[in-house]
Design a protein around this nucleic acid. Structure first.
Lengths: 172, 172
DNA sequence: AACGAATACTTAGCATGCTTATCATTAGGT
DNA sequence: ACCTAATGATAAGCATGCTAAGTATTCGTT
């Protein structure tokens, strides 16, 4: 077998680091009885307000069908509600329940702990540079599945904001 | 809901970039009828030689039980063999078949394409710096589950798991 | 040598992911 | 208005992930 030491590649380290982030988050979140993915749902709802399932899926860059069982469990656990939209009866609007707020507050603490731990020993400049390099690699890899999903039709009527402007993020 | 713009955090971009890497690899590998995870199995075998399932799981940083269905499918597809080890009949040694070699050669091409695409516009120094920053973040986040798995040779090895059980979460 | 602990693998159950197909509803063109 | 196409949610099938529990085998200590 041809040897190929991928451990020297940046892709390998992106993968390993993401894995550690997710494990660290899951370990912190276990006490809250919530998973990493469920926490992301609450995060996007807090940032963007109530969303339909398709909108939420687009923000999270997963398929709408992937979200169905995730949301099912969150409804079961009383973290969110699914309400039919009056203007379009196909849509189900996802809304955090009152019970979700205290959970979300504790989640923010978890995130801050993991973030602080992860950047120990790195200067502010290094963190910014890491983020900037990652964003460039991210953009290089294109839109693997959005392309097929986004309709390039017409005068971009309700273009559902795939991503925020790069500049807005940079200058923070 | 309290707003918390995680899109400015390096953790978010690690996550998003890893996702894109995996999608790009899966798209390339689809023609080979192989998945990202299966390709990693061949990669580790090519790098470390034949391994038992536990050894392979350790290299890949997944649980041994996770590997069972992955290896089942690879045996089914004729990519690997599971041979009982003569010295320890509990072990099953994983070996790539003859059929796996040409697949592996094409996989290397896929990896090289994705890697080249991902680092477009980045200098060698920037790639090295990215990798170096990722490794520091990776190390900061510690050993989320290796700790329980790697025997510290000490007297305190019976500690089963760090994470609480699913059921304990349910009844929160 | 005997016996309890550790190890290797498997199985079962849950939680994500994806693709493809289906159903209901809405939108668009004639 | 009418018919077709597009859209939103779901369902079904496959591929990973994890934990927990079970079986077979080996190790370590006595």
């Amino acid at each position: 077998m041809l040897k190929q030491d991928f451990r020297t590649s940046h892709g390998y380290w992106v993968h390993m680091t993401a894995h550690r982030f997710e494990c660290a988050m899951n370990a912190e979140l276990a006490d809250e009885g919530i998973t990493y993915r469920q926490c992301q749902v609450l995060a996007w709802l807090s940032l963007e307000g109530n969303l339909s399932q398709v909108e939420l899926a687009r923000f999270m860059h997963v398929q709408p069908s992937t979200l169905v069982p995730v949301l099912d469990r969150m409804v079961r656990d009383g973290l969110i509600d699914r309400k039919s939209a009056p203007d379009d009866r196909r849509k189900r609007i996802i809304t955090p329940t009152r019970k979700a707020l205290p959970v979300w507050k504790r989640i923010i603490k978890c995130v801050q702990r993991v973030r602080a731990k992860s950047r120990a020993g790195l200067s502010d400049e290094e963190v910014i540079q890491l983020r900037s390099l990652l964003m460039r690699v991210h953009d290089n890899l294109g839109e693997p599945l959005d392309k097929a999903r986004v309709k390039p039709v017409g005068p971009e009527q309700s273009l559902p904001v795939t991503r925020p402007s790069r500049r807005a993020i940079q200058q923070k």
